[in-house]
Simulated assay, not measured.
Amino acid sequence: MVADAIRKQRDHADDKVPEHQPHTAQVQEIELKTYTYGQHLYDDMIEAIDQAKDFVYLASYMWKGDRVGQAIKDAVVRAADRGVLVCVVFDGFANFVVPREFKTFPEGIHVLRFPVLRTAVPIIDIRSTGRDHRKILVVDGRVGFVGGYNIGSLYADSWRDTHVRVTGAAVWELQNSFVDFWNRHRGARSRRPELPDSGTWRWNGSIHAARNEPSRMIYPVRGLYLEAIDRASQRIWITQGYFIPDREIKDGLLAAATRGVDVRVILPERSNHVLADVVAHSYFAELLEGGVRLFHYRDVMVHAKTMTVDGQWATIGTANIDRLSLQGNYEINLEIIDPDQAEVMEQIFRTDLERCTEVELDQWRERAWYRKGVERFLRPLQFML
């Protein structure tokens, strides 16, 4: 925690991400708009909320009380003033330091502050563990947003992240996730309304939401990654903010590289969590020796949670490749099987590579002895990350 605090003080506030325009792809009758610049995303989120007529469902792991956070809050307040049903979820732990007055909403807005502790013995009752790490916005069932972006000014132009807007039948995937979570955790005796829970009116094989739900002990996102890695025959391109693969994912990537698949991973040169960086580094030598190529994104934090395979498959969502995301928190990732969206993701990956430095095996082996020792000493802490 001390190291993280020192690192954040030394971060360069002037470092910005490139302002690339969103990419659009058509998947059957569904439109996907992929964002890599936060301010573009927030502008479209506010526009969608301002057009709401029936309901606004918004969940965000972190919601900062700054300029961007206030702009989103003002938008949902305006929607509620028009008579729109507004339901908001934010994680109590992640927003602990956010001012209490900012987390106070007008009476017309229904708020679920996901509690830090939901049982006296969370280690024993694993159904009551996990943070709500999702980032979802659904408006009127016609448009939905999901991805890695939290809400805050820092993320508007200084973090490299990925989010997607869905328009069409697949919005149900995001709406259903919000409704299920809300109805399960709203509290039977609370004044929060029970939301209508409907089945999908149209099945779609191209876009599917995988949802990790600790309260039901269901963790399909990990299986989504493993299945795609196992199927790969040409390339696996991954971008992750925190990359600490478990044994099965690590072995799957190494097996893919052995059979000739082009396996590449982009991750931050310095993330906002030094412990996660150190533990991630403990895997580098084995991955590099096995043919996996690693790239450090320079200057700014890359926080995306994406992967694309063989120009046919892609995922965008909230889950990192680490234990907390894959076997701990509430998460949601969209699985998209479509060459047009896969091409969008590959194009974004190629663009990101221009800001990256490849980690070379020979140089990595020559890093200082004390760094190797710290990595070896801290690696067992991966179960916490």
Results as ranks from 00 to 15, higher is better:
A228T: 03
F383A: 08
H273Q: 10
I151M: 05
N150Y: 07
H20S: 08
T129M: 14
E289P: 00
N95M: 10
T306W: 04
P339T: 14
Q347P: 00
Y283T: 03
I109V: 15
D91E: 10
K250E: 14
Y61P: 00
G168T: 09
W201E: 12
G141E: 07
V89H: 02
E29M: 08
D277S: 06
G141C: 09
I123H: 09
E375K: 04
T315M: 15
N212K: 11
E375I: 03
A156K: 03
S158A: 14
I244T: 03
D4C: 05
R202N: 03
A170K: 04
I316K: 02
R131M: 14
R118E: 04
P18M: 07
Y283R: 06
H163I: 00
V68G: 00
Y219A: 02
N212T: 09
Y330I: 09
V279R: 04
E19Q: 13
Y61G: 04
I124E: 11
L195C: 09
E354M: 13
A314Q: 11
M384E: 13
V86N: 03
G205V: 04
Q382E: 15
E354S: 13
Q26S: 13
G199P: 11
V171C: 12
S282N: 13
G291M: 09
N333A: 07
V84A: 04
Q327D: 14
C87P: 01
M217G: 00
I124H: 09
R367P: 00
Y155W: 10
G205D: 14
K250V: 03
F96M: 12
E331L: 09
S177I: 06
L226K: 13
E269F: 07
D277A: 06
I332D: 01
R165V: 04
D81C: 02
I207C: 05
Q234M: 11
F383L: 06
R131F: 06
Q70W: 08
E173P: 02
M345G: 01
W201Q: 13
H23K: 14
V111W: 03
M307T: 07
L385Y: 06
E375Q: 15
K53F: 02
W369C: 04
E194P: 01
R7V: 05
G187S: 09
I337Y: 07
G130E: 06
A170Q: 05
R216K: 14
D161F: 08
M1R: 10
